[in-house]
Computed example of a mutant assay.
Amino acid sequence: MTNTTIPASARLDQKRANWMAGWLLSVAGMVFIMVILGGLTRLTHSGLSMVEWKLFTGWIPPFNDADWADLFYKYTHFPEFHKVNPDMTLEGFKGIFWLEYVHRVWGRLMGFAFFLPFAAFLIMRWVRVSDALFWKFLGLFILGGSQGVMGWYMVMSGLVDRPDVSQYRLVAHFALALLIIAALLWVAMGLLKREPYDNHHQDPENLGKWAFWLFALIALTALSGGFVAGTDAGFAYNTFPLMDGELVPGGLFDHQPAWRAPFEDITTVQFNHRTLAELTVVLIIVFWVKSVDKHLAPRTRRAIQLFGLMALVQVGLGISTLLLVVPVALASLHQVGAVVLFSLALWCIHELRAPRGDARSF
C-alpha cells in the first residue's frame, strides 16, 4: 500500500504521534543521563554535599566567596564532615559540591523538558483531557515529580548519625528511575508505527513470555546491584568466579536477623548479585539461541540481537569492575549497562507482542 492511499487524517495523527514519541524518548534520554550523574555522585561521595533541598531556588549556584562560605558552614554541621571529612577545606568542598549541584539542576531541567511540551500539546489540542494519552502523560509527570521527593528522602538518611545514605532508600530511588524509564519508553514505543506483522510470526517458543521474565530478572539483578553499591560490597571479594576461594563462600546469611542478610550482609549481598547476574546472562543467551531460526520482523530480530550482545558486554563490565576494585569509570559504565540492558529487554517485549488495534487517542 502506498502512502497516497492513507487518509490525510491518519497521516497527520501518525506524524503527531511520532513527534510525541520523539519527545518522550528525549526525556527518557535525560533520565538516563540523570542515572549516570546519580551513580557518579554515589561513587565520588558527593551526594551529601548539599544539605538543603530548595525546590524553587536550589538551581541558583554560589556566585561569590560569601555564598561558598555559607554553604561550607552548613556542611560542617552534619555528620559527613565530622566523621569522614574533618580535614576538608573550602576548596575540597567545592570539588564534591559541583557534581551534586549538576545532578539536582538536571532534575529540574527534566521537569521543564516534560511539562512545557505537554502543555503545548494540550494547547494545540494534540491531546485532550478526555484522551487516554492525556492520563498516561499526566502519570509520567507525577512519577517524575515523585522521584525528586524520593531523592531528597534518600539524602536525608545520610544527614543524621550515619554519614551514608540508607541502602534501602538508595535502591528505592534507583527502582523509581527504572520505572520512569520503562514507562517513558513503553508509551513512546506505543506511539510509533509497528512493523508489518505476518502470519509466520506465531511465536511457537513463547519468546514474548521469555522476554517478559528476562525483563523481570534484569530488574531484580539491577536492584540487587543497588544493594551492592549501598553497602560498598563491591570492595570485598575482588576475585572471580570464586569468593574467598570458594564458589559458595562461608558466612552466607550469617546475619541477625537472617532475613536482612540479602540487604545488609556484604557477603550475602555480593553473592546474590553475582548469582543473579550469572543466571541472567545464561538465560539471555538461551533466549537468543531460541530466536535464531524464527520468522521475526527485522526490527524484532535487531532488538533481540542487541539484547544478547549487551548482556555479554554487561557481564564483562561487572567482572572488570569487581576485579579492579570498583574504579569510578568502570563502575559507572556497569550501572549504565544495567539500564541499557533493562531498556533492551523492554524493547524486545514490545516487539514480540501480538498485534492489536491502534489504541492511540488524539
Rank of each mutant, 00 (worst) to 15 (best):
L217K: 11
I218T: 15
L220H: 05
T221L: 08
S224D: 05
G225P: 04
F227P: 02
V228C: 07
A229L: 09
D232N: 14
D232P: 00
D232M: 10
D232V: 01
A233K: 04
G234S: 10
G234C: 07
F235A: 11
F235D: 12
A236R: 04
N238Y: 06
N238K: 11
T239P: 05
T239V: 07
P241I: 09
M243R: 03
D244W: 00
D244R: 02
G245R: 11
G245Q: 08
E246F: 06
E246K: 14
P249S: 08
L252G: 03
F253W: 13
D254Q: 14
H255Q: 12
F263Q: 11
E264K: 01
E264D: 13
I266E: 01
T267P: 00
T267N: 05
T268L: 01
Q270S: 03
Q270K: 05
R274S: 03
R274L: 09
R274E: 06
T275G: 00
L276W: 03
L276C: 05
L276A: 12
L276D: 03
E278I: 14
L279Q: 09
L279G: 15
T280N: 12
T280K: 02
V282M: 14
L283E: 05
L283G: 02
I284T: 06
I285A: 15
V286C: 14
F287C: 06
F287V: 03
V289W: 14
V289Q: 08
V289D: 04
V289P: 03
K290L: 15
V292D: 04
V292Q: 14
D293L: 05
D293P: 00
K294P: 02
H295N: 12
A297Q: 15
A297K: 13
R301M: 05
R302D: 07
Q305I: 05
L306Y: 11
L306P: 01
L306K: 10
G308W: 04
M310C: 12
M310F: 14
M310V: 10
A311N: 06
A311C: 07
V313K: 09
G316E: 08
G318K: 03
I319Y: 11
S320V: 12
T321W: 01
T321R: 08
T321Y: 02
L323K: 12
L324Q: 14
L324Y: 07
L324D: 09
V325Y: 08
A329W: 10
L330N: 04
A331N: 03
A331R: 00
L333M: 14
H334F: 06
H334Y: 07
